[in-house]
Simulated assay, not measured.
Amino acid sequence: MDQDERHRHASSFGAAAVAYAEHRPDYARAAVRWALGSAPAPRVLDLGAGTGKLTATLVAAGAHVTAVEPDPGMLTELRRALPDVPALPGSAESIPLPDASVDAVLAGNAMHWFDMAVAGPEIARVLGSGGVLAGLWNVLDDRVDWVAGLARVSGSAAVGPRDTPASWRLETATMHLPRTGGAARFGSPEQAEFPHGQRRTADSLVATLATRAGMLVMTEQERQATLGRIRGYLASRPETAAGEFVLPMLTCVLRVRRL
């Protein structure tokens, strides 16, 4: 994906901010605890916070959270959902916080949009010594047969290169993380995966997949054709054809510590 295409995908979410807030999943609490490490009640920056899905999980875990989000539509939904959380306009490449002001920087389904050559030094600047940088991604657990079928039917626009466990491991193993930022140094990255699930109906799962960047940048004709295939598949499977079900997922975490 070239720079222009990457920007088009990364900036597509604002138009779907309300649907994103309604349908996207939260994050497994065990994954968030692992991402944060052992710091009690840490000061956490949720970077690229979107509508606050990870922010809310961090608040529930007892963290003192500041959220930073570049898209005005997403930021509006975040402030509506979490009015007591400081929520600032900004980006990974320009973080509106003082030096060494947080113990952890977390990003929920967002780190792959960062220009880490610019964001890395900014993250190092705001992160205190010994602090943690962690990216979290919710991925489909395609070890379950019907979920593997859903991934095949949905195509790469709805189920992208980090949206199943094996592809997530491969993509994040080679992801550019900040090793240095001025005088700052980072340790070796660690990966971990935690079981998660989201209660869905066929309609709400279709609505969830429709908020993926690859879907949002499609033409209306392409999007409706893809969503139609997904609806047909869900109607054909006994696990999803009637009523509510749990969509098997994993919350996957990539973590690196500032030395």
Rank of each mutant, 00 (worst) to 15 (best):
P42M: 15
E244M: 10
R33Q: 09
A21F: 13
P96N: 03
G187T: 12
Q191A: 14
A213K: 00
R185N: 10
S38N: 10
W137K: 03
G181H: 04
E69Y: 00
T76G: 08
T201H: 09
S154Q: 09
A21S: 11
T240V: 07
R6M: 14
A134H: 02
A148K: 09
A235E: 15
L36A: 13
G128D: 05
G90D: 03
W146N: 11
R199I: 06
T251Y: 05
E193P: 03
E222L: 01
R8M: 12
R257C: 10
A15F: 02
M249K: 08
I230R: 00
T55R: 00
H23F: 05
F13R: 13
G232T: 13
G228I: 01
L150V: 10
E93W: 13
G197W: 15
V105F: 10
L254N: 06
H7S: 15
A192Y: 14
A117F: 08
R6N: 10
L234G: 03
P25R: 11
C252N: 06
D26P: 03
D26N: 12
A41C: 11
E5P: 04
E244W: 09
G149I: 12
S94H: 09
L58V: 08
R229S: 03
G52W: 12
A28K: 00
R223L: 10
R223M: 01
A134C: 07
R255K: 13
R29D: 01
A242G: 02
R33K: 04
M175Q: 14
A202I: 06
A134K: 02
G243H: 07
M175I: 07
V65Y: 09
T251G: 02
D145P: 02
S154C: 09
H196P: 01
L205Y: 14
A81N: 07
L234N: 01
R199G: 05
A225H: 05
